[in-house]
Amino acid sequence: MVDALVTDAPELPGLDGRKMSKSYGNAIALGMTEDETAAAIRRARTDSDREIAYDPENRPGVAGLLATAALVQGRTPHEVAAEIGAAGSGALKRLTTEAVNEYLRPHRERRAALSSADAAAVLREGNARANAVADHTLDEVRAAMGMVY
């Protein structure tokens, strides 16, 4: 089952067209802010051809940005390229930045809420709930075994 999940998972494109990897320096980390994400996308290498087209072999940087935008928007890279047309790499980078930041916004909000919570209080509350469940379970076990004194 795990093998099926791993083989069915899409290979995420990096900002340079290669597979996304922290070691390649082409990844968008989940912990990045919107500004950090925008800066990473702005640094992505593209080319001087104004017409945006999905061509992973000859235009890997453009293809990587198209694939990233398409992935987070639930579209194909060809659809994104057609939308941008002759607007150039600047428009591609703006669209990709907006799409990625919109996609990651709920994750970032949840992360901010969790990081601002008092960790000790969360642990105390969870511990109290776990102890209550454990106490109830032990009472049931003792009753079933006739060990209630």
Rank of each mutant, 00 (worst) to 15 (best):
V2E: 09
L5Q: 13
T7G: 05
T7C: 12
T7Q: 14
D8T: 09
E11L: 13
D16N: 15
G17C: 10
K19M: 10
M20V: 03
S21R: 05
K22A: 15
K22F: 02
S23V: 04
Y24G: 02
Y24V: 02
N26H: 11
I28A: 11
A29C: 05
L30C: 09
G31I: 00
M32I: 00
T33C: 09
T33S: 15
E34I: 01
D35L: 08
D35A: 15
E36V: 01
A38R: 10
A38Y: 01
A40H: 12
I41G: 04
I41K: 07
A44D: 09
A44R: 10
R45A: 14
S48N: 14
D49Q: 13
R50M: 08
R50H: 11
R50L: 05
I52Q: 12
A53S: 14
Y54I: 03
E57T: 14
R59P: 11
V62K: 07
V62C: 10
T68I: 14
V72I: 02
V72W: 05
V72T: 06
R75M: 12
V80I: 15
E83P: 03
I84A: 13
S89L: 01
G90D: 08
G90A: 03
L92T: 12
R94Y: 00
T97C: 09
E98R: 13
A99W: 02
A99V: 03
N101S: 06
L104D: 10
R105I: 01
R105N: 09
P106A: 07
P106R: 07
R108C: 05
E109R: 10
R110Q: 13
S116E: 13
A117V: 00
A119K: 08
A120T: 03
A120Q: 06
A120C: 00
A132P: 00
D135A: 05
H136N: 04
H136L: 08
T137R: 05
T137N: 04
R142L: 13
A144V: 00
A144K: 08
A144S: 12
M145A: 11
M145Y: 06
V148R: 13
V148F: 00
Y149I: 00
Y149C: 01
